[in-house]
Design a protein around this nucleic acid. Structure first.
Lengths: 112, 112
DNA sequence: GAGACACCTTACCGTTAGGTAATGTATAGG
DNA sequence: CCTATACATTACCTAACGGTAAGGTGTCTC
């Protein structure tokens, strides 16, 4: 399922749990299913596993066995690659928005 | 519904028809419901209207009466603003992906 | 002001998506 | 080997979503 069209991508990113999983993998590096499941007290482990399968089917994450555990890591390049065509259409808008966000983060007023 | 959290945004962008509506408004400028509906032969007009309500509730589009028609236009700034916090997390990845995309569009090999 | 028109709103319906629970499979340890 | 562990997989249930159809509201035209 390498192509991962825009439709496909947005469908997979639509679920907040899946985006949270991606965020965790991006922040902390590779994690096991158990570690990830620990971050979602309201969910059963097999639910996490299912979400991981959805992400893996699009190549957004990849897994490597580590004994009896399984280490998942994000493939942010693929994520970016799949999102790029859509992003390109709105580039001028969000590039400005990102600058405003950065200005805000620095606690200084935007140049105005 | 001004805040439009990331969760909220992705839920609304998840539907391909809604993203297509946004694309059309971005490319062609303000359009009426009838004009938009014409682009979706498989859908009934009231379906389009429903999608527009979903987008409008998040402020992603706005409408102005024009006689008995209604002109919808995209609010790309709000779209970008809502997406920016999420985008910022993966910025290094997709900024590279966008460059590769641009290089590809110009028909030249990336600098490598 | 009566009708046509453009759109909105509501009610309803089938499909899908996300959740749990139960079962299956592969690996580590005693 | 036998058991426990760590995930994967399957079956099942419910809620949410996207769709149509029918009725409602406001506006233009004659």
């Amino acid at each position: 399922m390498l192509p991962s069209t825009t439709d496909d991508l947005f469908r997979r990113l639509a679920d907040p749990t899946r985006r949270h999983i991606l965020d965790l993998l991006a922040e902390r590096g590779p994690l096991t299913v158990g570690e990830l499941a620990g971050e979602f007290p309201d969910l059963v482990a097999s639910g996490i596993s299912k979400h991981l399968m959805v992400l893996r089917a699009a190549g957004l994450v990849s897994a490597t066995r580590q004994g009896r555990q399984r280490l998942y890591q994000i493939d942010a390049d693929r994520l970016a690659e799949a999102l790029a065509p859509w992003l390109a259409k709105y580039e001028p808008y969000w590039s400005a928005a990102l600058e405003r966000l950065r200005d805000l983060a620095e606690g200084q007023e935007p140049p105005h």
